[in-house]
Amino acid sequence: MVKTVRLEPIAQNTSVETNGNLLSVLINKDLDVLKECGGRGMCATCHIYVKEGMESLSPVSRREQRTLEVITTCKPHSRLACQARVLQDGVVVELPPGMYINSIKDIEALIGRRADQDLLHPLTGKVLVEAGKLITRSTLKQIEDTTSFNVGNYFSLTTDS
C-alpha cells in the first residue's frame, strides 16, 4: 500500500510504499542527500527532521540512536532517512538547513567565493563555513583539519559491551 510523505520547505507531496524508507523518497525527488554508508545508519549524512508524523515511522534502532548522538544539530525529532521506514500517512520531513559537503574537492571549486549558505560537516553537522563568509585556501586547510573525524573509530568506542 502506498503512503504519502510531505517534503518541506519545498511543499511537495510524494509517495512511498509502506515500509519504504525516507531516503528513497528524498532520492526519488532528486534532493542532494548524501548516503556515505550505503543506508546502514552509520554515517549521519542523511540526517533529517520529522516535523510531523514521528509515530507513523518505524521506531529508532540502537544503531540509529548511536549515530544520532554524534550529530551536533540533532533534535528530539531527528531521524536518519535511511533508517526511518514509513508505516502510515501523515509524515512531514524537513532537511536540515545548510549544504552538506561530500568532499574537500567540493570546497576547492568554491575558493574565492562567498558561501551562499552554511557549509556543514556531513557527519557532525558542525558549521564549517558560515553563509556569506569568503572561502579561502586557509579555510580549506581548516576544513581538512576538522573533517578528520573517523566514523569507524567512533562506533568502535561506543559499541555496547
Rank of each mutant, 00 (worst) to 15 (best):
K3C: 14
R6W: 12
P9N: 04
I10Y: 12
Q12K: 13
Q12M: 14
N13I: 04
N13S: 15
T14C: 10
S15Q: 13
T18R: 14
G20W: 13
G20A: 15
L22D: 06
L23Q: 02
L23T: 04
V25N: 01
L26E: 10
I27H: 08
I27L: 12
K29M: 15
D30V: 09
D30W: 08
D32Y: 03
V33T: 11
V33N: 05
L34P: 05
M42I: 13
M42T: 03
C43W: 00
T45S: 12
H47P: 05
H47E: 08
I48F: 05
I48C: 05
I48T: 14
Y49T: 04
Y49P: 00
V50P: 09
V50Q: 15
K51F: 06
K51T: 10
G53N: 08
M54F: 12
E55R: 05
E55C: 01
S56W: 07
L57W: 12
S58I: 15
P59W: 02
V60F: 11
V60A: 04
E64R: 06
R66P: 03
T67I: 08
T67K: 02
L68V: 07
E69L: 09
I71E: 07
I71C: 15
I71W: 05
T72V: 14
T73D: 02
T73K: 10
K75R: 14
P76E: 03
H77Q: 10
S78M: 10
S78K: 00
L80V: 14
L80G: 00
C82G: 04
Q83K: 01
Q83V: 09
A84L: 01
V86D: 00
Q88D: 12
Q88V: 05
G90C: 02
V91H: 05
V91Q: 02
V92I: 03
V93I: 12
E94Y: 00
P96W: 01
P96K: 04
P97E: 11
G98K: 00
Y100H: 11
Y100K: 13
I101A: 03
I101C: 03
N102I: 02
N102T: 11
K105G: 08
K105P: 00
I107T: 06
A109N: 13
L110C: 10
I111W: 09
G112S: 07
R113N: 15
R113K: 14
A115T: 04
D116P: 04
Q117C: 14
Q117A: 14
D118C: 02
L119P: 02
H121I: 08
P122R: 09
L123W: 07
L123E: 07
T124I: 06
K126A: 15
L128P: 00
V129D: 00
V129A: 00
E130T: 00
G132Y: 05
K133Y: 01
K133F: 12
T136F: 09
S138V: 09
K141G: 02
K141S: 07
Q142E: 13
Q142T: 05
E144K: 12
E144Y: 06
D145P: 07
D145G: 11
T146S: 11
S148V: 13
F149Y: 09
F149P: 00
S156K: 12
D160P: 03
